[in-house]
Write a protein that binds this DNA or RNA. Structure first.
Lengths: 192, 192
DNA sequence: TATATAAGTAAGCAATCGCTTACTTATTGA
DNA sequence: TCAATAAGTAAGCGATTGCTTACTTATATA
């Protein structure tokens, strides 16, 4: 009974995520979402309840994208430290080539929201857990292969690499490629 | 001839800067500025022309604050590398103690604007020049005192430390103090 | 002291915000 | 075949946005 939907939830959600990624939360209006998602505001609100809720789901979507694509060099690594460089340079290339011109949605969101929204903070914590484990697991493999000193503090090193990753999310927006590659290269040398 | 101003330009500008620092550009409304600056919107627009222009002047004001306070541990250093740690930890304390709860206005602005506004980009470049020189000069002094290897690439090292600084501006918003101090400590060890 | 002039105030402009109401259209199961 | 029901559309809600207009108040100079 009743009419069937013209749109696919997953598809319009991905488009919403891209809109938030490109423009940030506040700068993405309901009209813009309507346009980018290709569905009417009435439909949008019936499906996603509110702009806030749609944003939270978009963050979940972006975490999925991280698992499947962005963090792949780390998650698929068998312990080669150079996979970390690949992760960094892939990110730089994606931003500078305008493929994902607005950097990292989680970093942008951390800056825009801080800890002002518990629901958003939950998503941010979830992401930082994810990237922490990605680094930690890679480093554990590297250590067992003798590529890191036996007494290396992997917790500390993981926290360090998260800091460097987030450093890139800011500098990639304003600094030239040479400065970025200096940063990455020094970071890589520092962990070997 | 004519009536004299009740407000001091410098004072209300500092209050505007604080408002933008606390809330970001878009989240700071003309009503909020009116309230925080303690002057009427008519007066505000007569003095500063537009919200955009007021924001640009606020960024200049914040750069001045960097020169006089925030970057002081670097600018006043005679080449002790531990002054860099002081700079990092001072920043963490200022944010976590809610003295400057919203981190770094320049980093926030880089994330909010990217390169979408030439006038804003100009201010960001000016800041990054400033912090670059602060690191470079400190490192030059450290090198001449024999605290760095003779063949150390100071340009590369400065770019690295800028990256780490910006990493802190993101992580300080969402991660716990232990993770932040891990990051700082590893960074310090990496340059010695 | 009178007047020119600048600064202050309150109200309100058009545009846009997130979201909803009123209504039309299409599809399903009996 | 046809009522029940869900989805789509267009218009518009009150609130808020950046900014201005119309007017009042105060002060430096003649």
């Amino acid at each position: 009974m009743g009419r069937s939907k013209k749109y696919k939830r997953q598809e319009v959600l991905e488009k919403a995520m891209k809109a938030f990624w490109d423009n940030g939360f506040i700068n993405t209006s309901a009209r813009m979402l309507e346009d980018k998602m290709g569905i009417n505001q009435r439909t949008l609100y019936a499906e996603f309840k509110s702009k806030d809720q749609l944003f939270i789901e978009s963050l979940q979507q972006y975490e999925q994208l991280n698992k499947e694509v962005i963090l792949k060099p780390l998650l698929a690594s068998d312990g080669d430290l150079e996979d970390i460089r690949t992760f960094f340079t892939d990110f730089i290339v994606a931003v500078k080539s305008k493929q994902s011109p607005n950097g990292c949605l989680f970093a942008n969101t951390a800056m825009e929201f801080g800890t002002t929204s518990p629901e958003v903070k939950e998503r941010l914590d979830s992401y930082f857990d994810l990237i922490y484990m990605a680094f930690f697991d890679l480093l554990t493999k590297a250590k067992s292969k003798g590529k890191l000193a036996k007494n290396t503090d992997l917790v500390k090193l993981s926290n360090y690499l998260i800091g460097c990753t987030e450093g890139l999310t800011v500098t990639v927006k304003v600094r030239d490629e040479k400065a970025l590659l200096d940063f990455v290269d020094f970071t890589m040398n520092s962990i070997k």
